[in-house]
Design a protein around this nucleic acid. Structure first.
Length: 317
DNA sequence: GCGTCCAGGTCTACC
DNA sequence: GGTAGACCTGGACGC
């Protein structure tokens, strides 16, 4: 039941500064980077990636550098020895995933004219968004977040991982990872509904799993499309609307739900009698104010609620 | 204890 | 092209 990964290889990645390793791989809001079951201890992350749509690899990340001279050590663990060329390919994929080549100086220059951005980057200097190599976990996240309190969303996700996910053991750590789309596609909707308490979401999730399994662009392929085309592609999936597409998009969309809409309404000083109906207006305001960096602002805000509440003197919690 | 309400959206069926 | 209403179900809440 647990796959032991005993073969390993390592490489280092240099990043465009500023790159805060700790804040990036272990977000202050408690968001996991790749799986809720990953382990973060003493500034080291043990986690997992699904590579080339099938094999599960162990990933251990640690920092060799600083925020201004960032260097990340990546150790990869696999069940078989990697073939010639594979380490290089993995290195490119992990570099893309960790966004080490991304230059966020344009985002930070918004601080010159935007007091909110100024506060955010003071608190979370060098924090980056990261992507993932497989799209299915983000779609599971998006689907389970719909119409449910966060505790229930977590319950659904954990049940899916525990019942249909995979376990790997490497470097003395055991990590559980999300189920493959194939595994979910092979399971009946009624079983998913019953065992994972998915409710009406079961049918959609199974249908999505089938599509992903039978061939859907990878996050890296979607990244090469425009943000708009990516969204259109994702929204072809049943049960994936604008919010879910923004969550799953590697272009870092501005994924507003009623929870985050309330927060941004307060930040913009808008009245909040109906958070759901104000979402389109808030989206427009974010687009006008932050443009392509709106997704970054969203991540920074949601990871800085405590400090923002104090500094803006409004209760965002 | 037991009923009632509704949640970190999406789709469909109507205007 | 815009918008009520339905959708699973567990936990919070009122009695």
């Amino acid at each position: 039941l647990v796959r032991v990964l005993s073969s390993s290889t390592a490489f280092t990645l240099k990043a465009v500064p500023p790159y805060n390793f700790s804040l990036t791989i272990h977000k202050p809001a408690g968001w996991s980077m790749l799986t809720p079951y990953e382990i973060f201890e003493d500034d080291v992350l043990w986690t997992a990636i699904r590579w080339l749509s099938h094999s599960l690899l162990g990933l251990k990340l640690s920092s060799l550098g600083t925020i201004e001279k960032p260097e990340i050590k990546c150790e990869i663990f696999s069940s078989r020895k990697l073939k010639a060329g594979e380490p290089e390919e993995l290195s490119r994929d992990v570099a893309w995933m960790l966004r080490v080549g991304e230059d966020i100086r344009d985002f930070y220059s918004l601080a010159n004219s935007d007091p909110l951005v100024r506060l955010l980057i003071k608190d979370l200097y060098g924090m980056r968004r990261t992507s993932r190599l497989d799209i299915f976990p983000m779609l599971i996240l998006a689907v389970t977040l719909q119409m449910a309190p966060i505790t229930r969303s977590n319950q659904m996700m954990n049940l899916l991982i525990e019942r249909y996910g995979e376990k790997i053991l490497f470097d003395g750590r055991e990590i559980q990872y999300w189920p493959s789309p194939k595994r979910v596609a092979e399971t009946s909707a009624s079983e998913l509904q019953e065992k994972c308490k998915l409710g009406y979401r079961a049918k959609n999730l199974r249908w999505i799993a089938e599509i992903i399994d039978s061939g859907f662009p990878t996050p890296q392929e979607l990244d090469s499309l425009s943000p708009e085309d990516t969204k259109v592609k994702l929204m072809e999936l049943k049960g994936i609307g604008e919010y879910s597409a923004d969550i799953a998009s590697p272009h870092f969309g501005f994924a507003l739900d009623v929870w985050s809409a309330k927060i941004f309404a307060l930040i913009f000083g808008e009245k909040v009698e109906s958070p759901r109906s104000i979402i389109p207006k808030l989206r427009k305001m974010a687009e006008d104010r932050w443009g392509k960096w709106k997704g970054y602002v969203l991540t920074y805000v949601l990871n800085d609620l405590g400090n923002l509440s104090k500094k803006l003197e409004i209760d965002l919690s």
